[in-house]
Amino acid sequence: MEFSFTKEQKERAEEILKRYPVKRAALLPLLWLVQEKDGYVSDDAVKFMAGFLDISPADVWGVATFYTMFERKPAGRHHVQVCTNLCCRLKGADWLLRYLKNKLNVEAGATTSDGKFHLSTVECLGSCGTAPMMQIDDDYHEELDAEKVDRIIAGLK
């Protein structure tokens, strides 16, 4: 299916292009717009973006696959990311990951059967002093214990 921005996104895209002296520099902000609309960067979006910025699809693909936050396939409705880096590990990240795997009944790197949650492990999110932590979509949840995790997960639609 051909990709296109929404009308409102088109306006934002035009505004974004004005921030940079060369078009290509708008690639990252525009890929964020793509992901905001579809939840991931599809092959069609790559082609669209290449045309939009006058660069090759390979250029767009190279960038979209380099940065880990750009999803390359549809993920769950909520992306649950657990930091398993050193600092979080010292403060119980192993426990948190185990707890979430059991609670959501899913392995890290996979999506729950109802498509609601995608669980993954990530490297340092700059939340070392408030470990263990997870990021769900755009929000950090810090200093977690079982009760807090239960409450946060229950609060998600």
Binding site: V22, R24, A25, A26, L27, L28, P29, L31, W32, L53, G62, V63, F66, Y67, T68, M69, F70, E123, C124
Partner: peptide, 25 residues
Amino acid sequence: AHRGAGAYICGEETALLNSIEGYRG
């Protein structure tokens, strides 16, 4: 304000510049 997209290496200043220019970091 320009947002990166998940790459520690972009904290390295020249990688950061490439990232702003729309390249891999």
